[in-house]
Design a protein around this nucleic acid. Structure first.
Lengths: 112, 112
DNA sequence: CGTTTTCCTGTTGACAATCTACAGGAGGAG
DNA sequence: CTCCTCCTGTAGATTGTCAACAGGAAAACG
């Protein structure tokens, strides 16, 4: 039956990345992808073609910063971490998410 | 004092329109926009440039059908209504929304 | 009447985010 | 030395939304 694969909602990726970094601390791109897939029980697949440009965007906006390091497996990896601006943005986006998802929930539940 | 205006999440409009038609029965575009703004307490603004193309798309996909009629105010208006396929699609999208929003909620609430 | 406001339907062009698919280097395992 | 996993990216096409424009027709107002 229907494949359990789902695309993500546009505008949601930034939120997910920011929150993941907030929770995990400095993490490399691949790890972020793994984490999101894991938390979503593999319902959300991360495309590299989506993730890396998103990371670039976030860095250019000053919400995250990055530096090269070494992963748990001794591989070269670029570690991203949240800037103060990123943390603030995260709060904004969380609140925004709550508002919008609340509205939609209200619409589709037909209401109380 | 961020303006309380919010863009909608891409992919969400179809769901909103379908559900509105399901709730209200045959409705014209303007009415759909009004309804969504009202239910969202004006947090979501409907752009005509977004709504009408969306209605076209939905009709071309066979999810809604339309016919000209007369509004409450005696104006000519195109009334849209749900097809059986649209109703089925609505259920699918509602379920999909629940899954995805559930995942995101879990992520941002820190979990447990 | 004549003018303005409200209702109602569209179109166009630009833009941003995602998707699919491709490309490659470097370490570890066999 | 070959293959697999880890890890970082890029290119092109597609799509949905946005902002702005355009217009017709009924009602309200003077």
């Amino acid at each position: 039956m229907a494949a359990p694969k789902a695309d993500l909602l546009q505008g949601t990726l930034d939120l997910l990345v920011l929150k993941t970094l907030h929770t995990l601390g400095p993490t490399h791109g691949w790890g972020i992808a793994r984490r999101i897939e894991q938390v979503s029980e593999d319902l959300l697949q991360m495309n590299q073609g989506t993730l890396y440009p998103a990371l670039l965007r976030l860095e250019q906006r000053g919400l995250i910063r990055s530096e090269w390091g070494v992963s748990d497996n001794r591989r070269k990896a670029r570690f991203y971490s949240l800037t103060p601006e990123g943390a603030a943005q995260l709060e904004t986006e969380v609140e925004n998410w709550r508002r919008i998802s609340g509205i939609i929930a209200r619409v589709i539940e037909g209401s109380s």
